[in-house]
Design a protein around this nucleic acid. Structure first.
Lengths: 341, 341
DNA sequence: TTCATATCGGTAAGGGTTAACATATAATAG
DNA sequence: CTATTATATGTTAACCCTTACCGATATGAA
């Protein structure tokens, strides 16, 4: 370890600063010297020391990615590797590196973020969640540190750059789809209402019902993050109502999977007895039985946009707050079906 | 931005070096001064500049995580976020940060690794895959850069630290389980034989067959990474044999899901007509229908061990190569069933 | 009293890079 | 032929932190 810019300089017979300028491909260096220097670099196997450079330019060419805090299963959602892939692809293209913080408790998460920010480890941060009254968001916002949210910010909506889907509309459309299929009793299963995405999707669901003149029944709305005992019970209750739903809008493909399984145990069949429509279109949604009708939210693309926005923002700190709505697309598959009369 | 060690020093009325020593909790500093300094740090909101520190100590307190190269679905496997969570938990505990490289092509991946290594961005690397003749592995090995593999190294097995399961035994056991249930015709579906894990699992499968005096038939072995058209066809062929298998050992839960779906379309039922046993025990394997009999390889734990080993190795470069075999556990669920006579 | 040893801190030299400023040479204008 | 400017490179001071080495004071033993 340890061929430095000075070694290269000596070998090429120039000053270190010249080498530095060659690296930056500065136009003020003659082609001749550039060639000579590059040759020396290659011969010595020189690679710049990032830490030294970062120290000098007070940046880090790295972006931080913060996953939601969670000690449990939530992270097993393929959503995360997929969005990471999107973020990573542009990061790589622009020579940025990725720093990730993987949940743990909210407290730990906050610490990690502080480490990233104060330690100058990253130039900007992408938040892979949006939660009410989130310490991290507030911190970043107050510090005026470049960050973008994947999802909708809880506050300061037009001062924060974020990339999201039009979840309200998507949810309205997919609910509408169930209605079009003749369903009159449609339930909704979503995660915690602390998460903005749940709120939006629920709103879209309700809007569609209202537009169709259908009643919005509270008993039809279930909140469960994952199908642990609590959620299980909620679903069971839903289906022991006098009038159980014949259609279900579910906020996440993975949850749909669990629900379908549970329904089969209760001897309800999908889609014969009950239609299910959900969100995300992760890979597995096309290989389950039945394949899921789901909203393709284009996760990868969201990652790409988030990454791009962040980098723009990092480069020009006064870049105005942007909102990017990634278009969705409904994937009609076999988990929804016309209601038999 | 920008309260430095000097500011703290001035405020506390000591020299910068003293502050530095307080940060390192050096025993040469009296409790009194420590308190004073810490107070000053807090009041000024001081946080050390990581880049400067890294430069000074020639390390980075960060570990790199390399995902398999892949432009497609493979990364959507919940295996990845889960192992990341394991790695992250110990990384956080030891104040290390996580740097991840997210695939792309093999070429890009290699570049990223070089960036990490040469740029002093990370102190060590965890490889989340093991592939034959992998450039990255060779590079790391030759450079004698600290790294650990999750999975079994293709070469230099006893000079490389790795954490793995006993895949041969696990596969033997789960195949044995199918045999115990009365299955005589058992197929195997795995990924590319370039990946060591596939090789091991196939070996275990064959061993079990041989031990039971059952023939090992080549037509029963299918290779398909994911269920794209090619894999689909292979499975179809498998089931149009004169004697289609009644049991299937599948190297990955996610693939099982696809296979089950496909089988249902071909009008085979799981587990009535055919039993399926697979690997990984990702969360979704317990919520599918039927819930999968699968080998719990303890992904999270693998991450924890990999992380620990790497950190040990980083701290003591001459740490001998270790092999950690994370115990597996078979989860008996409903995708396997006694063969009807 | 004197020397040895601890204890506690300070000084200053890196660590590798960038960038503002300075300098030298060549080209052009007057 | 000198003055001015453009071009190409060198000098040097940051960037912020750690650590080897040195100094000062206090404590105790001889």
């Amino acid at each position: 370890m340890g061929v430095t810019i000075k070694d290269v300089a000596k070998k090429a017979g120039v000053a270190p600063s010249t080498v530095s300028r060659v690296i930056a491909d500065n136009s003020r260096i003659s082609l001749d010297t550039k060639k000579r220097v590059r040759k020396a670099m290659k011969e010595l196997g020189y690679h710049p020391n990032i830490n030294a450079r970062n120290l000098a330019v007070r940046s880090s060419q790295a972006i931080g990615v913060v996953m939601p805090s969670s000690t449990d299963k939530a992270l097993q959602n393929p959503f995360f590797p997929e969005i990471l892939r999107g973020i990573g692809s542009v990061a790589h293209g622009t020579e940025y590196s990725l720093y990730v913080s993987t949940g743990g408790t909210e407290e730990e998460q906050f610490e990690e973020v502080k480490r990233m920010v104060f330690g100058n480890r990253v130039d900007g941060i992408i938040l892979l969640y949006s939660r009410a009254n989130d310490e991290v968001t507030n911190f970043l916002f107050e510090k005026n540190f470049p960050f973008v949210i994947v999802g909708k910010p809880y506050a300061y909506e037009n001062q924060i750059t974020y990339v999201d889907n039009d979840n309200v509309r998507a949810s309205r459309e997919i609910t509408q789809h169930l209605i079009d299929l003749g369903h009159q009793h449609i339930g909704f299963i979503g995660g915690s209402t602390e998460r903005l995405v749940t709120v939006d999707r629920m709103e879209g669901y309700m809007t569609a019902l209202k537009e169709a003149g259908l009643p919005v029944r509270d008993e039809y709305k279930v909140q469960t993050e994952f199908l642990e005992s609590g959620g299980r019970k909620a679903v069971e209750e839903l289906f022991s109502l006098d009038q159980p739903p014949t259609g279900l809008v579910i906020a996440d493909d993975l949850v749909s999977l669990g629900v379908i399984n549970m329904l089969e145990q209760l001897n309800f069949h999908v889609p014969e007895d009950i239609s299910i429509a959900s969100f995300n279109n992760v890979y597995l949604s096309e290989i389950t039985r039945p394949p899921l009708t789901t909203v393709d939210i284009q996760i990868y693309l969201m990652g790409v946009h988030a990454s791009r926005c962040l980098i723009e923002k990092v480069k020009a700190k006064d870049e105005p707050a942007k909102r990017i709505i990634v278009p969705h697309k409904i994937m009609y598959r076999q988990s929804t079906k016309k209601k038999e009369l």
